[in-house]
C-alpha cells in the first residue's frame, strides 16, 4: 500500500520536474519546482525522518519559492526602468 503511494508521488514529482525544466513560462517553472519539494517532504515523512520533513516543507516549498519570485520581480522591475528611460 505504502509502496503504491510512493510510486504515485514519485511519478508526480518526475512530471513536475520535467515541467519545471521544459516550461517556457518562468512562473510555472518556479511553482513546479516548489511542488517537487513539497512532495519530497511527504516522502521524508514516510521514510520516518520528521525533522527533515519539517525543514523541507518550510524551506524547500516556502522560502525557496519566495526567493525565486523576488528575484523574478526584481528582473521585471529592471526591465520596467529600462522601458521608462
Amino acid at each position: 500500500m505504502i509502496t503504491v503511494f510512493i510510486i504515485i508521488l514519485g511519478i508526480i514529482m518526475i512530471l513536475a520536474a520535467i515541467i519545471a525544466v521544459m516550461s517556457k513560462n518562468l512562473l510555472t517553472a518556479i511553482i513546479s519546482s516548489g511542488v517537487i519539494s513539497l512532495l519530497a517532504s511527504i516522502i521524508y515523512l514516510i521514510l520516518s525522518a520528521p525533522d527533515v520533513a519539517m525543514t523541507e516543507a518550510a524551506i524547500g516549498s516556502g522560502l525557496t519559492t519566495i526567493v525565486f519570485l523576488y528575484a523574478l520581480s526584481r528582473i521585471k522591475k529592471i526591465n520596467k526602468e529600462i522601458d521608462d528611460d
Binding site: V21, L26, A29, I30, S33, S37, T64, F68, A71, L72
Partner: peptide
C-alpha cells in the same frame, strides 16, 4: 533561472 532551478 532554469539553471538555478536545475540546481535545486
Amino acid at each position: 533561472f532554469k539553471i538555478v532551478i536545475g540546481f535545486s
